[in-house]
């Protein structure tokens, strides 16, 4: 069986899966819109939580939250289940496809053979949409890829039941009730307000604008505190979280800019256009940061001077974002 499913390539998997699924149910909503309404933008630097011995940096909220917030704010009911049994999970998937519904699945990137080898780490929160079955293979719309592709039964089982941090446990989801008419406006305002609050008001200095400043301060000390190789690896991790596939560039800042532009025309508030422009400029500074950091990694010459430069760029980003979100906080309908 096969469902007529329109695949739109997107920058980020969670936005993309939600946006594509909702489009199937006749709710036209773009990827940046999903990201903005779901308040996806964030920043956190957690030096004491380490992944392969390297501190965790993140430019977005936790996986799954965008999805949750969007459905709440738009009043969409999603059916979402996890499984203990692999066979039951696959049977349920088949049954749902039989009904003619495309299904969103949570998977591990490591077990998806169609992705480039270099991207296949153990990341357990990749969203894909399965929309049919042909000759025993499942048809997959992976939001970050250009085209749809196929996956074997066995590979899909492995991907759905990967272990480790945040195991997906075969999670599958699909919208059940999609209202026919929508008022995006309150949802947009809510989304922007929450993003601004997240970035400015978390009283712990690891998150939001304060988190960026904290990273800037710690990063300056890396060449003294760590040996050269480790300092470079730490930097590399920050670059990857910011620029790797699924970020839309500039640590999600460009997706957010695109969202503000759409919001501006939806709400008919032209000032948001100007803010979008500022977000774009900040995103460019983030790119500058990644570029300089990449140069240090490549040159393998970690002189204290260049780390200082990086730190200054980050502080500038923090200042800019503080100004941006202070303005956005005041948004009303």
């Amino acid at each position: 069986m096969e469902v007529e499913f329109e695949h739109n390539q997107s920058a980020h998997c969670e936005n993309g899966a939600v946006s594509n699924l909702l489009k199937f149910h006749n709710l036209g909503i773009s990827e940046p819109m999903v990201f903005g309404i779901g308040s996806g933008l964030f920043f956190s630097y957690l030096p004491f939580i380490k992944l392969n011995g390297i501190p965790v940096t993140s430019y977005r909220i936790l996986p799954g939250w965008i999805f949750k917030r969007v459905s709440n704010r738009l009043g969409i009911s999603m059916h979402s289940t996890t499984f203990r049994s692999e066979t039951k999970a696959m049977e349920e998937l088949d049954r749902t496809l039989e009904k003619g519904l495309p299904v969103g699945l949570l998977t591990s990137v490591f077990y998806l053979p169609y992705l480039p080898k270099a991207l296949r780490f153990h990341f357990n929160a990749h969203n894909i949409v399965v929309f049919g079955k042909r000759n025993g293979k499942y048809l997959v719309s992976d939001p970050v890829l250009e085209e749809t592709c196929e996956i074997d039964y066995d590979d899909l089982v492995r991907a759905r039941f990967a272990k480790g941090t945040m195991p997906p446990k075969g999670k599958m989801y699909y919208p059940t009730v999609v209202p026919s008419s929508f008022d995006f406006k309150p949802a947009i305002v809510k989304g922007i307000k929450q993003t601004a609050g997240d970035m400015l008001n978390v009283p712990i200095p690891l998150f939001g604008v304060k988190g960026i400043r904290f990273l800037a301060k710690s990063l300056k000390k890396w060449p003294d505190k760590l040996d050269e190789r480790r300092a470079i690896l730490y930097l590399g991790q920050v670059i990857r979280m910011q620029e790797e596939i699924g970020t839309g560039g500039g640590g999600f800042r460009f997706i957010f800019g695109a969202f503000l532009q759409e919001a501006s025309s939806q709400l008919q508030q032209p000032w948001l256009q100007e803010v979008a422009q500022e977000v774009t400029e900040t995103g460019d500074r983030w790119r500058d940061f990644a570029f300089e950091a990449g140069r240090i990694c490549k040159g393998r010459a970690s002189s204290a001077v260049s780390y200082k430069t990086l730190s200054d760029i980050l502080l500038e980003c923090a200042d800019r974002e503080k100004a941006i979100f202070t303005k956005l906080k005041k948004i009303t309908l």
Partner: peptide, 21 residues
């Protein structure tokens, strides 16, 4: 100044970071 989707084959800093990982 309007946003659109653009396709890219990758970026040098990203490649460097992935390679070293």
């Amino acid at each position: 100044g309007t946003y659109t989707k653009v396709k890219t084959a990758g970026w040098e800093p990203e490649n460097i970071a992935l390679d070293q990982a």
